[in-house]
Amino acid sequence: MKNRIIISVLWIVPLIIIAFLCIYFTNRYNAEKEIDQYIQDYGITKAEISNEEYPLFNSLSVPKGFFKTIYTKEDEGNYYIFQFDNKKVIFSAVVEGNEVSIDDKLIEKLKHQPSEKVLP
């Protein structure tokens, strides 16, 4: 009887872990599609992107959601941050060392300005 319980636990725990990982990677895939569409609507083309970071797992200190950071060839030291959470993409950017939202005046210093599709 004890062996059956141990075997059951050894089967159930990995199945639960696999289920959670499947859900996580499905959500991550869908988030990346939404973020990529937002980037395209924003007006940044793939040719203008010099580097992008989309971490597999976020640290515990960052807000909930998935993040993609975009560096472009024309914006030295500045970069764009796209966060997907609650079925929407939230834009922010780091301009001259300051993280700003889409309606901040410092956004005007970026090479790529938001298009009408993404403005609030």
Rank of each mutant, 00 (worst) to 15 (best):
C22R: 11
I16Y: 09
C22F: 14
K64W: 03
E52M: 07
I81K: 10
I102C: 04
Y80N: 04
V95I: 13
Q37W: 09
F57V: 09
A31Y: 01
F20V: 07
I90S: 01
K105W: 09
V94I: 15
N27A: 06
V95E: 02
I7H: 10
F91R: 02
K109A: 13
I90V: 05
D41E: 12
E108Q: 10
H112S: 08
D85H: 13
N98R: 15
I107N: 00
Y79H: 13
K105A: 11
N51M: 15
G43L: 04
E52S: 12
L15S: 14
I23A: 09
I81P: 01
P114G: 05
D41N: 15
L110G: 06
I17T: 01
I44A: 01
K88E: 07
L110V: 05
R4N: 12
N78P: 01
S59A: 06
I81R: 12
D41L: 09
I17L: 06
Q37H: 13
L119Y: 11
F20Y: 04
G97L: 02
Y24V: 14
N86P: 00
I17D: 00
V118K: 01
S59N: 14
Y80A: 04
Y54D: 03
V9F: 09
Y80G: 01
F20A: 02
E53D: 11
Y24H: 15
S59L: 08
S59C: 09
Q83Y: 05
E34C: 03
T69E: 08
Y29G: 09
E34L: 05
F82L: 14
S59E: 12
K68C: 06
K87C: 06
F84H: 03
E76L: 11
S92R: 14
Y80H: 11
H112N: 14
Q37F: 12
H112C: 07
S8Y: 03
T26A: 05
R4H: 11
I35W: 10
F66N: 05
N51A: 12
Q83E: 14
D103K: 05
Y54R: 07
N98P: 02
I70S: 01
F84G: 00
G97S: 10
P114Q: 05
V100D: 08
